[in-house]
């Protein structure tokens, strides 16, 4: 199908792309502006705001905190959720229908109720961890569940795992070995996608961080929140930095997937 045959469709695609890029472009422009009043374009350009933010020790530690928290939560999610979804898909299909229902839970329960629940759980033994960063890691894991479930499940469904396992059994390949050598590598792109999407989500998470560890610990979003009165320029810089990091991680993930696909 050539684009010339469907000019209307092509136009729609461009329009959608521009619509999605516009906020990013505007934010970027604002982050490098010296001032932006009375015109459609900024008065002048400068990287001053970047220098202010990037050399700020508080920003650096907030960024590091966010990355470490998100990284830990995602590692834990990979270790817990991925095996659970695979096991349910392969061996306990009845359990799987329950997982499909649980998927919407993190979205269906109002955040404030979740927060109150979490605060109570983590303020009494045996999990008296209130205010500690580990609480944030633990509560982020269920938040990742839907994205992991959907991506892993879709990848598995595209595979016809039952036939693959049976073929393996006849060839003398154990289920474990087949999982490691065939099924996991085949669903790897799905897992990578879940990691990237969740990473972006966790980096911009604010409510959990504020409510659960607000006092002791500053994540990127909380730092941004603290800067809200200073200047919109600084906020723009933070958003762009956060956006670039997410982009880099996305590229890294896709590179990894691509390398795996073409390897040997």
């Amino acid at each position: 199908m050539t684009s010339s045959r469907h000019p209307a469709l092509t136009a729609t695609l461009w329009l959608a792309a521009i619509l999605m890029l516009l906020p990013v472009l505007a934010t970027f422009l604002n982050s490098i502006a010296t001032g932006w009043t009375g015109g459609i374009l900024p008065n002048g350009l400068s990287l001053g705001a970047y220098q202010t933010i990037l050399t700020d020790g508080r920003f650096q530690s907030a960024l590091l905190c966010s990355i470490v928290i998100a990284g830990l939560a995602l590692s834990l999610a990979c270790l817990l959720i991925v095996p659970a979804v695979i096991a349910a898909h392969l061996y306990w299909p009845s359990l799987d229908t329950w997982m499909a229902r649980l998927v919407i839970l993190p979205y269906a329960v109002p955040t404030i109720i979740l927060m109150v629940g979490y605060l109570r759980v983590f303020s009494a033994p045996p999990l008296q961890l209130s205010g500690q960063p580990i609480v944030l890691v633990l509560t982020y894991v269920p938040l990742c569940f839907p994205m992991f479930y959907i991506n892993v499940k879709n990848s598995l469904q595209a595979l016809d795992t039952t036939e693959l396992l049976e073929a393996g059994r006849l060839l003398g390949i154990s289920d474990t070995r087949l999982l490691r050598r065939v099924i996991l590598p085949s669903i790897f792109p799905g897992i990578a996608l879940a990691v990237v999407l969740n990473f972006a989500g966790l980096m911009s998470e604010f409510v959990y961080a504020r409510m659960l560890v607000g006092g002791q610990f500053e994540t990127l979003q909380m730092y941004m929140f603290a800067q809200r009165d200073l200047s919109g320029r600084l906020s723009s810089v933070i958003v762009i930095v956060y956006f670039v990091i997410t982009l880099l991680i996305t590229f890294a993930a896709f590179r990894l997937v691509w390398r795996k696909e073409t390897k040997s």
């Binding site: 016809d160 693959l164 049976e166 050598r181 065939v182 085949s186």
Partner: peptide, 8 residues
């Protein structure tokens, strides 16, 4: 449906 190992 063949059941070939798709990544190999």
């Amino acid at each position: 449906h063949y059941a070939l190992f798709p990544n190999m």
